[in-house]
Amino acid sequence: MVLQVGAKALQRRRDQLRGSAESVDANDAFEDGGTVGLLLFYAAECGLKERLIVRQGHRDSGALEPTHDLRRLAKELRLPRAMAARLDRLQSCRMHPSTRGTVALGDLHQAWRYGAKIDPADEKDAQEALRALISWCEQD
């Protein structure tokens, strides 16, 4: 079942998730980049889907294909060149040095949801890219 959510609800949720991420990030005692990343990922997803609904004149998210692929959503929105380039540079994130491998941008939400450890520098880059996407959605 695909949940049908309107643009205003997605916009509200984007803002709530971003706010929660900033609260967690500001709490020095709670050093968990995965939680911050997960909240930012879903905030960006809500923002991109909200923009698609508005731009395409749909009533709700039921008109969109269900996906967590931020690149795909961004491509549909035809993001400005600078924003698209930022996403292109972030093809994947390295796993923490204690493990091997990489995680594609589209799978980061799973890595963060299940507690996989991401290389700290790559995780920071991913979070910055997600914040930039959220900001773009707010300004579009």
Results as ranks from 00 to 15, higher is better:
2 V>R: 15
7 A>M: 08
9 A>P: 08
12 R>H: 09
18 R>C: 01
19 G>F: 02
19 G>L: 03
19 G>T: 05
21 A>D: 12
21 A>G: 07
25 D>T: 04
26 A>K: 07
27 N>D: 15
27 N>K: 12
27 N>W: 14
29 A>Y: 13
29 A>N: 05
32 D>K: 05
33 G>D: 12
33 G>N: 10
35 T>M: 12
36 V>E: 00
38 L>R: 09
39 L>R: 02
40 L>H: 09
41 F>Q: 01
41 F>I: 11
42 Y>N: 07
46 C>N: 14
47 G>D: 05
49 K>P: 03
50 E>A: 11
50 E>V: 01
50 E>I: 00
52 L>W: 00
53 I>A: 00
54 V>F: 03
54 V>S: 06
54 V>M: 03
56 Q>P: 02
57 G>A: 03
58 H>S: 04
58 H>L: 10
59 R>K: 11
59 R>T: 13
59 R>N: 12
61 S>R: 01
63 A>I: 06
63 A>P: 00
63 A>W: 06
67 T>S: 11
69 D>I: 04
70 L>T: 07
70 L>F: 04
71 R>M: 09
71 R>S: 11
72 R>H: 14
75 K>N: 09
76 E>T: 01
76 E>V: 00
77 L>C: 11
77 L>M: 07
77 L>F: 06
79 L>D: 08
80 P>N: 03
81 R>L: 08
84 A>T: 14
84 A>G: 09
84 A>F: 00
84 A>I: 01
84 A>V: 02
86 R>F: 12
88 D>F: 14
88 D>E: 15
90 L>K: 10
91 Q>R: 15
91 Q>S: 15
91 Q>F: 14
92 S>Q: 13
92 S>C: 07
94 R>H: 13
94 R>Q: 10
95 M>Y: 07
96 H>K: 10
96 H>G: 00
97 P>N: 08
97 P>R: 11
99 T>I: 07
100 R>S: 11
102 T>P: 03
102 T>S: 11
103 V>R: 02
104 A>M: 06
104 A>H: 08
105 L>C: 14
108 L>Y: 07
109 H>P: 00
116 A>R: 13
116 A>F: 13
116 A>Y: 13
117 K>E: 12
117 K>V: 04
117 K>Q: 14
119 D>N: 13
119 D>T: 07
119 D>W: 07
120 P>G: 06
121 A>E: 10
121 A>L: 09
121 A>F: 03
123 E>P: 03
123 E>L: 12
125 D>F: 12
127 Q>T: 12
127 Q>P: 07
132 A>W: 10
136 W>T: 00
137 C>T: 12
138 E>D: 15
140 D>Y: 08
